[in-house]
C-alpha cells in the first residue's frame, strides 16, 4: 500500500520502564491521523521514536520499503523527510524568523540562499508570518512562534509532518490561530500525524484517530467511531474525563 511510514512491533523502554509496547501503526499518504490519550501514555515517545529523537528498543520503522532502524541507514537523510513541530516551539533563538526557515534548507538540503528564501517566504505566507521575517523568536507571541515553527518544518518539504501537542503551551486565545493553520494544511492534502488534546480538532480534521493508553494503541478508527461509538471501556472513560474537564 501507499503507507508513508509503517511501524511494526515498535517498543521503547527507558531502563526497566517499558513506555511503548508492540505498536503496529501506519500513516498513508495524504492522511491526517490524530493521536489522543492521557498524559504519560506514551504519545510523545511514539512521535520521538518515529523521527529517531529516541532510539526504539525493538521493532521496525519501514519507510520506502526500508527498515530505517537498520544500522547502515542514513538517519539524517530520513529525518529531513519528517517535519516535527514541538510543544515548546523550539525556534532557533539565534536566528530571525526568515533564517529559522532557511538555515536547514541551506545546510541540510544544500539549496542556494536565494532558492531557500523563496521557499521560506512561500510557507511563511501560508502561516501568515511573512511580515515578521526580521523578528527574533523572543519578540514573538507563542502563537506566532508556533506558526513560524510550522513554516520551518514545511520549508524542508517533508513527506510527513509530526505535531506533538502544538497548542498545549499556548495561551487559550492563541490556540485558534495555530489550529486554523493546521486545518488548512490538512485540507491541502499534507500528511500529518498530530498528538493533541484538542478533541474538537481531532473530530473535525482527522481521517483517523488513535487512542493510546499505557504504551499501547487501545483503539483506533474514524473520528465518528472513536468519539461517538467507542468500543473499548478505557476509551469511553478517557472521553468522559476530557468532557468533564471542559
Amino acid at each position: 500500500m501507499d503507507a508513508v511510514i509503517d511501524i511494526q512491533h515498535l517498543s521503547k523502554a527507558f531502563g526497566s520502564h517499558q513506555v511503548l509496547k508492540d505498536i503496529d501503526f501506519s500513516v498513508k499518504k495524504g492522511e491526517v491521523v490524530c493521536i489522543i490519550g492521557s498524559s504519560g501514555s506514551g504519545k510523545s515517545t511514539l512521535l520521538r521514536c518515529i523521527n529517531l529523537l529516541e532510539k526504539p528498543t525493538g521493532g521496525q520503522i519501514i519507510y520506502h520499503n526500508e527498515n530505517i532502524l537498520d544500522k547502515k541507514h542514513d538517519i539524517t537523510a530520513y529525518r529531513t523527510k519528517l517535519g516535527m513541530v514541538f510543544q515548546q516551539f523550539n525556534l532557533f533563538n539565534n536566528h530571525n524568523v526568515l533564517n529559522n526557515c532557511v538555515v536547514g534548507q541551506i545546510k541540510v538540503l544544500k539549496r542556494s540562499r536565494e532558492d531557500a528564501e523563496k521557499v521560506a517566504m512561500k510557507y511563511l505566507k501560508v502561516v501568515g508570518m511573512d511580515k515578521y521575517i526580521n523578528a527574533k523568536p523572543k519578540q514573538l507571541s507563542g502563537g506566532q512562534k508556533q506558526r513560524v515553527a510550522i513554516a520551518r518544518a514545511l520549508a524542508m518539504e517533508p513527506d510527513v509532518l509530526l505535531f506533538d501537542e502544538p497548542t498545549s503551551a499556548l495561551d487559550p486565545e492563541m490556540v485558534g490561530e495555530v489550529l486554523k493553520v493546521m486545518k488548512e494544511l490538512a485540507e491541502s492534502g499534507l500528511t500529518m500525524l498530530v498528538v493533541t488534546h484538542e478533541m474538537g480538532f481531532a473530530k473535525e480534521v482527522s481521517d483517523r484517530v488513535v487512542f493510546m493508553d499505557k504504551g499501547v494503541i487501545a483503539e483506533e478508527g474514524t473520528p465518528d467511531q472513536i468519539f461517538n461509538h467507542p468500543k473499548e471501556e478505557r476509551t469511553k472513560e478517557f472521553l468522559q474525563r476530557t468532557r468533564n474537564s471542559i
Binding site: 539524517t76 537523510a77 516535527m84 514541538f86 539565534n94 536547514g104 545546510k107 541540510v108 518544518a153
Partner: peptide, 30 residues
C-alpha cells in the same frame, strides 16, 4: 542551551557539527 534547540536542529536533519555551528555555538558564545 535548551535541549529543544538540539532536538529541533536534529529533527531538521542537521548532524552534531551542523547543529553546533548553526544553532548552539552562536548562543553559547553569547
Amino acid at each position: 542551551i535548551d535541549k529543544g534547540q538540539f532536538e529541533a536542529a536534529h529533527a531538521i536533519g542537521m548532524n552534531h557539527f551542523q547543529t553546533m555551528i548553526n544553532v548552539v555555538l552562536p548562543q553559547a558564545i553569547r
